[in-house]
Each structure stands twice: as structure tokens, then as C-alpha cells.
């Protein structure tokens, strides 16, 4: 019975969704408030309490692992890891870019998140199979658009939960403690050290 809590905090949209028995009963997707630290837990609590859902009935928690805002994505990942660990509920990860692309109805869909200086975090997916044609990358925006002139690129996060739960978009996390965000980029300090 498909009952899932889904969270993504990697973009400026705070996304919390609750699907009970295959039907999305709670959706919070507010953009631009930049206060995920304040709203994340209260929104999760509201989702579960509004529907009096006992966490032990969750089939899984799905978390967007980025790329996107480093500070942002960590919050969702940490909360998902902790809730899954403490409730003994399976954890599933999905790229934030895949979450975005899942909301698109074309055959080939892309997603991008502004990463400043004409760069984006971008990916392109075959929507029917969830196969990444271009995996999540840090890439020049014009480069990505030129390579896929026909593709639709989603730039906001409004996932299609039905598609996510019924095709191969999400993958089970074997070691919950070890899960970290997919930052895509190394930190500047790591890069400088590597280059020197």
C-alpha cells in the first residue's frame, strides 16, 4: 500500500508530500521563502498529524539528495536519515533534478537549478524509464540547452508523485547512516588542494 513521506530542501522550494495508499493527501511546495530551517520540521509534523498517520505505516521516506543549495539539501537529508533510523522505516533517495523532471510530460525531460556564473546543476532524463540521459552535473547552461534543443527543462520543483512511486525514479538506501547529499561539486578548498 503505497504510503510515503517525501522531502526535498535542496532548492528554494520547500517540498513535503505525503502519499497514503497511493493518493497524495498532503502537499507543501512553497518557493522563495528561504526559511527551510524554520519550516521543515513543522511542515513534516503537519503532514503526518493532519492525516493521523502512524509512522510505522510508512512504507518509506523519500528524500531529495540534491544537487542544489548545500546548506538546504543537508537539512532534508539529515531529517530523513534521522526519522528513517528512529522509526525503522526504509529510506529512499532521489536526485533533486529527477524530482523536478518527474513533473514533466514529454519523453525526454531536463531539469536545472541555477548555480551562478552561467552555470547550472542540470540533468536530462528519459521520463518513461527514469534513465538519466545526462546524470546530475555542474554544467554551463548554454551547453546543456544546445545539446538538447527539443527537451523541456523544468526549473521549479513540482514532482509527479504517482510517476515517482510507480517507476524507477527512487532508489533504496542500503546504509542510512552513510547517506550524504549528492553535492556534485567539491568544495573550493578541496578543489584548490587537489589542483595544487
Amino acid at each position: 500500500m503505497k504510503t510515503y513521506l517525501a522531502i526535498d530542501t535542496a532548492t528554494d522550494t520547500l517540498f513535503v508530500s505525503l502519499t497514503v495508499s497511493g493518493t497524495e493527501v498532503f502537499l507543501y511546495a512553497e518557493t522563495g521563502t528561504r526559511d527551510h530551517a524554520v519550516k521543515l520540521m513543522p511542515t513534516i509534523i503537519k503532514a503526518l498529524s493532519d492525516h493521523s498517520l502512524d509512522p510505522k505505516h510508512l512504507e518509506g521516506i523519500i528524500v531529495g539528495v540534491g544537487p542544489g543549495s548545500y546548506t538546504g539539501v543537508r537539512m532534508g537529508v539529515v531529517v530523513a536519515k534521522m526519522l528513517a533510523s528512529e522509526w525503522h522505516v526504509p529510506l529512499f533517495e532521489v536526485s533533486t533534478l529527477a524530482l523536478m523532471a518527474s513533473g514533466c510530460n514529454d519523453d525526454v525531460c531536463g531539469a536545472m537549478i541555477d548555480a551562478r556564473n552561467d552555470y547550472v546543476f542540470g540533468a536530462v532524463y528519459n521520463v518513461a524509464t527514469a534513465d538519466p540521459v545526462v546524470p546530475p552535473s555542474y554544467i554551463e547552461k548554454t551547453d546543456l540547452l544546445e545539446r538538447f534543443p527539443q527537451a523541456t527543462f523544468k526549473e521549479t520543483l513540482m514532482p509527479n508523485m504517482d510517476r515517482l512511486l510507480n517507476t524507477a525514479w527512487v532508489k533504496a538506501v542500503a546504509d542510512i547512516d552513510a547517506l550524504t547529499p549528492n553535492y556534485v561539486r567539491r568544495t573550493k578548498a578541496e578543489k584548490d588542494r587537489h589542483d595544487s
Partner: peptide, 19 residues
């Protein structure tokens, strides 16, 4: 460090809520 603080705060909130 705000990024570091937010990891602990979110972990603590999730633990407190879970139990």
C-alpha cells in the same frame, strides 16, 4: 558555523519528534 549548527539542530528536532 551556521551550516554546521543546522545539521545538529535538524537532527535533534527529528529525533525529538520521532520519540
Amino acid at each position: 558555523l551556521i551550516g554546521s549548527l543546522l545539521v545538529g539542530i535538524n537532527a535533534a528536532k527529528a529525533f525529538a519528534y520521532a520519540h
